[in-house]
Design a protein around this nucleic acid. Structure first.
Length: 324
DNA sequence: CATCAGGGCCCTG
DNA sequence: CAGGGCCCTGAT
């Protein structure tokens, strides 16, 4: 097969709602490393599947917080129809939540006694991920009951076997396969990639997406609780995975319902300065304090911590919790 | 060498 | 609703 060359380029500009924080939106340092996207200050690359095609995207910051502007360069391997470009733009806008109105959250954030400096630092950051609902679901599955190292291994093995390699702009990234690409893949074949019991989840979920049991478009417009119920019906999706999916894939950042054990440990430290606080208490406190903005508020504090770590700050209690 | 828990979820009793 | 089993790995 002839290697596909993503050398053609189309460009457009998006003006996100203000205030906007480019790096806080396009890079989340707490996430595990995968060849799905790449980031440098003011620049972001990803391979995005929209409709039937995959595109290489380079997104560049070309505005300021108060007058935000991003430039999108779309790399492709054939001539594009105008409608395709329009679809790509709409998808970027949705996935990175570029049109959202955070003024209410920002008002509350300014008045926050403890964390106002953090909220100010990241003001304009969005709940965002480059992945579709199906793609994030796959990522959540390989996160289940695994340490970071194992998650990375599983993800790489899956991408190598079924992902679409997109060489563009002198880098190579992968797009996750489509649900229907799993149709002729056996559970046995998946297990050979050492994903263990998750093989069955991947098969069943892919089938559900093909059959239309899950409708991403519908879920995007549901209220928080309906979306959660819908997602939890799926085989392999429990409370933790639903939480991951609702935010950021659905931009539902209402009250939190679930805290994973390792998050509980980290929340205990950052919100209470203690070793371990009961998850139910943490949930109640955070939801009382931040209400419908809980998930967003917590993510600002959470990512801020991982930004410090990324910049080389030693956080002695954090390291043992991030097992590589 | 064996045992065990892990960034969950399903199934059973 | 509590608890066992699941795939694999690295830690002990």
């Amino acid at each position: 097969m002839k290697p596909l060359v993503y050398a053609r380029k189309s460009s457009f500009v998006i003006e996100p709602s203000a205030p906007f924080h480019f790096d806080g939106t396009f890079h989340k340092p707490s996430r595990f490393p995968a060849p799905l996207d790449a980031w440098d200050p003011g620049k972001f690359w990803t391979a995005m599947r929209v409709g039937a095609s995959v595109y290489g995207l380079r997104i560049t910051n070309s505005g300021v917080a108060s007058r935000p502007k991003i430039r999108v360069d779309v790399f492709h391997n054939r001539k594009l129809a105008a409608s395709e470009l329009k679809a790509v733009r709409a998808e970027i806008s949705w996935r990175f939540d570029l049109e959202t109105d955070l003024s209410e959250f920002n008002r509350a954030a300014r008045a926050d006694r403890r964390f106002a400096p953090i909220f100010r630092r990241w003001r304009g950051s969005r709940s965002a991920i480059a992945l579709s609902l199906y793609e994030l679901m796959i990522v959540s599955i390989v996160l289940q009951n695994a340490t970071v190292r194992r998650t990375v291994q599983m993800m790489n093995a899956l991408l190598e076997a079924f992902g679409t390699r997109i060489p563009f702009d002198s880098r190579t990234l992968y797009a996750i396969w489509r649900p229907r690409d799993m149709r002729d893949v056996s559970e046995h074949e998946l297990r050979a990639l050492k994903v263990g019991y998750r093989a069955r989840f991947i098969k069943r979920l892919s089938d559900d997406f093909v059959a239309g049991t899950v409708d991403e478009t519908a879920i995007r417009s549901m209220d928080l609780e309906s979306a959660r119920r819908e997602l939890m019906k799926l085989y392999g999706v429990g409370p933790e995975t639903a939480q991951i999916l609702l935010y950021p894939a659905c931009h539902r950042c209402g009250p939190m319902h679930h805290i994973a054990p390792w998050q509980q440990k980290i929340y205990s430290r950052i919100f209470y300065g203690r070793r371990l606080i009961p998850a139910t208490k943490i949930l109640a406190d955070l939801n009382r304090r931040y209400g419908m903005w809980s998930t967003l508020a917590v993510s600002y504090v959470w990512e801020d911590l991982f930004w410090w770590r990324k910049r080389g700050e030693q956080i002695v209690w954090l390291e043992p919790e991030i097992r590589l």
